[in-house]
Amino acid sequence: MNAKPKIAVHKFASCDGCQLAFLNLGEELLALAELVEIMHFAEAGPVNLDAQVDIAFIEGSVSTPDDLVRIQKIRANTRFLITIGACATSGGVQALRNLADGREWIASVYAQPEYIESLATSTSIASHVKVDLELWGCPVSGRQVLAAVRALLFGVAPVEERDKVCMECKRTQAVCVLVAKGVPCLGPVTRTGCGALCPRFGRDCYGCYGPAENPNTEALGLRFAGLGLLPEQIARRFLFIDNAAPVFAEAGARWRSAADD
């Protein structure tokens, strides 16, 4: 990579919260701006949608006809493409419309749905173009984003965390909320990266970092049933922030069909 690599931060359908991983860096934001050239980052100021860059960060999911064209251009103009957050990586909470009649949903919120340019689905960036690195989390943290930039600046492959939240709980000696409180914690199937935040707050993980490696959603679902959750409630545990991540989507569909039986 050159002495001063160029980066871009693009937004698709999202809450802007993952861009805050940059904007909340404080002093480090100013340091980052010395290390790299920020070509496009509309919320921070620079606008250059078509700039050639070394790293393009993508926040948000693909949900409009325009998005389909824009993501292809961004891919063609960057060496590395990194998704930041649940929306870009799995389609986000708004992908719940994929399970329903998206058009009908739009019609029920807007009086004149014909003015709304929106696809019936919300999909991850990887369902449209090659993604070089996926940073999971709703939201991603500044630590994750800086680690990725640093690794690429040094020309090494970024380390990907795929461990379960459970492992993080053990390492930080947090009390297991599933065992101690009987709450339906998704920690056994969810990727770490958050520092086991929810269990450390005495509450159930709700899966915002997406599926971990080798997740056993079947066994966990049965455990939730043992805690007294109804099949539809178990389905909704999986069908939340990362509902369109395949592992969670399948688990949700299984429990939802069990609910319908």
Binding site: F12, A13, S63, R97, S108, V109
Partner: peptide, 14 residues
């Protein structure tokens, strides 16, 4: 033309 994310519908049934 921020794409709508339809939260009011997502909440139904939760």
């Amino acid at each position: 033309f921020e794409p709508p994310r339809l939260f009011e519908k997502v909440l139904e049934g939760r």
